[in-house]
Design a protein around this nucleic acid. Structure first.
Lengths: 88, 88
DNA sequence: TCCATATATTTCAATAATTCGTTACTATCG
DNA sequence: CGATAGTAACGAATTATTGAAATATATGGA
């Protein structure tokens, strides 16, 4: 069971419009960075930065697949939280 | 259905250890500010500021009861989200 | 009205987050 | 090996958040 500090670090990582969009995209099939970039009108470095923040928070993992990198949601509960928010 | 921006504004308001503790206290019976202050070792102005942030986000409402002020959680979903986090 | 208690507001310094251009790395292909 | 595509890291400018002291306001009672 995580401490309040850990819980709030996770929440803070999600609590940003761009990062929420990124997670929503990863919830479906989308996986590599280019796809995310193409669907969001932001510079590559900005997307990469947000991905790193989510990864450092333990929310995403990444693995290289040849020349691209595939990101994936590691914490199931994150999806539940986004679902609750989406239904508000 | 709220926009991503609105959703992230709500999340951002919760995503702070002090504010999460405040919400946890309000989930139970606790209600007025002094009780919260006494159970958390923080200056009054700090608590008051956090309460304001939560109120501005629409998460809490307040009503005066004589000399004290009673706060209450207005968004049920917030409790669900905290429950999910607590179970992680 | 004056006081004591409860809560809110203002304000400021310190710190942290955000964005994005540029540069560096990594893997594949010819 | 050199070129190219995908991604990460660096660094600087801007903006947001945090915590707390000082101050203000509200309420009820003497």
């Amino acid at each position: 069971m995580k401490s309040i500090e850990e819980q709030s670090r996770i929440l803070k990582a999600i609590a940003h419009p761009h990062r929420m969009e990124i997670i929503l995209r990863l919830k479906g099939d989308g996986c590599n960075v280019s796809e995310i970039q193409n669907s969001m009108d932001l510079p590559q470095s900005t997307i990469s930065n947000h991905l790193l923040i989510l990864k450092n928070a333990g929310i995403l993992s990444s693995r290289r697949e040849g020349t691209t990198v595939c990101y994936k949601i590691e914490i199931e509960e994150i999806k539940q939280i986004l679902d609750i928010l989406a239904g508000m």
